[in-house]
Amino acid sequence: MRLAFYLFTALAASFGLPELEAAPPARDAIRIVQLLRSDNVLRRYPDALPSLLRHMNEETTARFDTDPLFIQSLEDEQLLQNPILYINCDEQPNLEFSDGEKQALREYLERGGFLYLDAGIKASFLGSDLGHSYAAWEERPEVKELFSNIFPEKVFVPLQRDHELFRSFYKGLPDNKDLKIQANQKKLPETVLSFVEREKWPQGTYSFVGLRVKERIAVLASPICAMGWGKDEFGAWIPPISFRIRESSEGFNEKLKLASFKGGTYEVKREDGLKDILYSEPGQRPLWVQEPTGKWRIFKYYSGEEISNFAHAFYTRIGANVLMFALTN
């Protein structure tokens, strides 16, 4: 990983950073720029990014300033002085950017900058509910529109499960040692573990879409991951996270077609490009899903310490991989 740090140094050198107005003190840490339109906005997971950066400092030889640099506009001159921009889309009042900001972002990305759009993927059925993550395989419409203005000739492309991003630092799912639990302790309920390993996060992968600029992935978007990064001062994960799991059972293909249902349906793009149809009733979490294969499965919700710990460990590994990918890509 020391190599990664040197690579970053080289990257920063070739980044074409403009000269500062005043000579800065020697900087020994990478500063992440975070877009925060206003101090008064409701922060989604304010402890998240600093916790992830601390984790990076503890687990890798890359050196991050754990204090993100907040900017209110993409036209802020400080953006061009730092190679990684983080935007939590759920934290923005809206995803509307002025022409000046779009131009600044284009310039930033073309000059070697990297943008991570957390919550840049958001399944339509989630609506205004910000506390959920769902692995859809296309960027949210606002992101699509934004980048169609910035790079009209480019589109976001889903990352394959074997993409190097998922191996840039961590590989696979957390095990008991990572979770700091005893070797014999059941890390997840059986059905949950089986779904997680086979479908939810196989080999520690997740749904990402990327946009290439000058032959490299310059923008990455994913469902919200920041909810899984936060740690309190004693090292405990915050906030609690629960899992949405698909479960099947004898006769569900017939029963769920006929079972009582009063809500609406939503289409969500899958990894294979086909669409799932989600059944959801107002005031309740989604009930079940009709898959394009003709299979019907029910959504079950699991919560608890072990679920939360596992999810946090996973999202932190994903976050670490994104940062390492940004440095070495």
């Binding site: 059972s249 004898e250 006769g251 569900f252 029963k255 769920l256 079972a259 309740q284 079940w288 029910i298």
Partner: peptide, 14 residues
């Protein structure tokens, strides 16, 4: 059938 019973239990949660 155990599968039918567990399926019914899952469905009732809705």
């Amino acid at each position: 059938e155990e599968n039918v019973r567990s399926g019914a239990a899952r469905l009732l949660g809705k």
